[in-house]
Simulated scan of single mutants.
Amino acid sequence: MSTIEIRPAVAADAARICAIYNPYIASTTITFEEAPVAEMEMARRILDVNEAGLTWLVADLGGEIIGYAYATRWRARPAYHHSVESTIYLDPEASGHGVGERLYRRLLDELHSRGLRAVIAGIAQPNARSVALHERLGFKKVAHFTEVGFKLGQWVDVAYWQLMLPGDRPQQSHSL
């Protein structure tokens, strides 16, 4: 593959991101969304991630986005502030060329630089390629939920992998 630029996503990337993501919605159990995502909705999602102080990245090959990765808050309550859930999708043509690993490593570096601690990835099962990518990056399997989703006429398991980013624990104030 030619030179791939990994850069922050912008709203103008939404149409191409939808073109990558919507086929996964339509024909796989990899995502539990069931309706295609419109360009304006995807642009809002990109903006929401950026406004939350998190990261949404795209892999750009000669002006064409071939993959994306981002992080969202793991849970809303304040104690979860240092934990995020990660997501990555590639154009099927880009799969198997190291794009996913490079994109994900950059995402993890960005999250670490923001002082985040735990990265959690939910993976619908089976998905051997995604499991292999996460484990290559150091994620460890921490949970497996049986038949928690139903899509395309079948029950789907979801397993979770976690990666602890290096760093100190935040200091807590103790008031009496």
Rank of each mutant, 00 (worst) to 15 (best):
E147N: 14
A35P: 06
N22A: 14
L54I: 11
M1R: 08
Y21V: 08
H144K: 04
V84D: 08
Q125Y: 10
G96H: 01
R77E: 13
P170G: 04
H81M: 13
I6Q: 07
I123M: 03
A94F: 10
I17P: 13
A43W: 07
Y160N: 00
W74P: 04
A26P: 10
S83T: 13
A9L: 02
P36F: 09
N50F: 05
A38G: 13
L165P: 08
R129W: 03
V158A: 03
I66A: 02
R75L: 11
S27H: 14
I4E: 08
Y89C: 05
L116K: 07
K141F: 02
A71W: 04
R114D: 02
V10K: 12
A71T: 01
L107A: 03
G53A: 03
W155A: 02
Q171W: 01
Y24C: 00
A9K: 10
I88F: 10
W74F: 15
Y24M: 07
W74N: 11
A14G: 06
Q154S: 00
D109G: 02
A76L: 09
Q172Y: 04
A38F: 09
K140W: 05
D13C: 06
M42E: 11
T31M: 04
L54H: 14
R75I: 08
A38R: 15
D48N: 14
A121S: 06
F145D: 00
A52V: 08
L103G: 02
G98N: 12
L137K: 00
T87D: 02
V142T: 14
E101C: 09
F150R: 00
R16G: 09
A9M: 04
